[in-house]
């Protein structure tokens, strides 16, 4: 819970509609009340964060408190998007959690190298997914102190 009482926004970047639906279900099942936003590829993700295009209307909103990022996406993959986020002085402090089907060691090493906060392989069963979401909620929302731009209005 943010300091001013407004729950932080959680942004999910995943091209798979099924997965987006399952994540939404899992959040519901976990009884997390935080606003859950979705983008479908790397480009959209950057537009969202930079408040460009369709996301201009969010200009006054705070940045998402946590980003759940899939690696394999069309247009711009998660790896590239991650690099751009970490290069951006305004965005680089937002915690990014990789949530992907990949188990490749190379991906794990590379993304931690780029500064991700956690690397989670998508659970096979829904129950496990719910557990993962609950853990994320308990840790990133209840325990961790986040940078101010994620909890207060950007303006």
């Amino acid at each position: 819970m943010a300091r001013d009482g407004t729950p932080i926004t959680i942004l999910v970047a995943d091209d798979d509609a099924d997965d987006r639906m399952l994540i939404e279900d899992a959040f519901e099942e976990s009884c997390l009340q935080n606003p859950l936003h979705f983008v479908e590829d790397g480009e959209q993700l950057l537009q969202y964060l930079r408040r460009e295009g369709d996301f201009e209307k969010l200009r006054d909103e705070p940045y998402p408190g946590v980003i759940l990022l899939d690696l394999n996406m069309p247009k711009m993959c998660g790896r590239t998007a991650l690099g751009k986020i970490k290069e951006d002085v305004n965005l680089c402090r937002i915690p990014v959690i990789i949530l992907t089907t990949s188990k490749a060691e190379e991906d794990i090493l590379r993304t931690y190298g780029l500064g991700v906060s956690s690397f989670i392989t998508k659970p096979v069963t829904f129950d496990r997914l719910v557990e993962v979401v609950k853990t994320i909620g308990a840790y990133w929302i209840e325990i961790v102190a986040l940078p101010p731009e994620c909890t207060t209005n950007a303006a």
Binding site: D18, L22, V124, T125, F126, D127
Partner: peptide
Amino acid sequence: QEPLRKIETFGDRLKN
């Protein structure tokens, strides 16, 4: 494996 995981998962969801 990917679609299979979905079938299993949604099957689970449906049943539960």
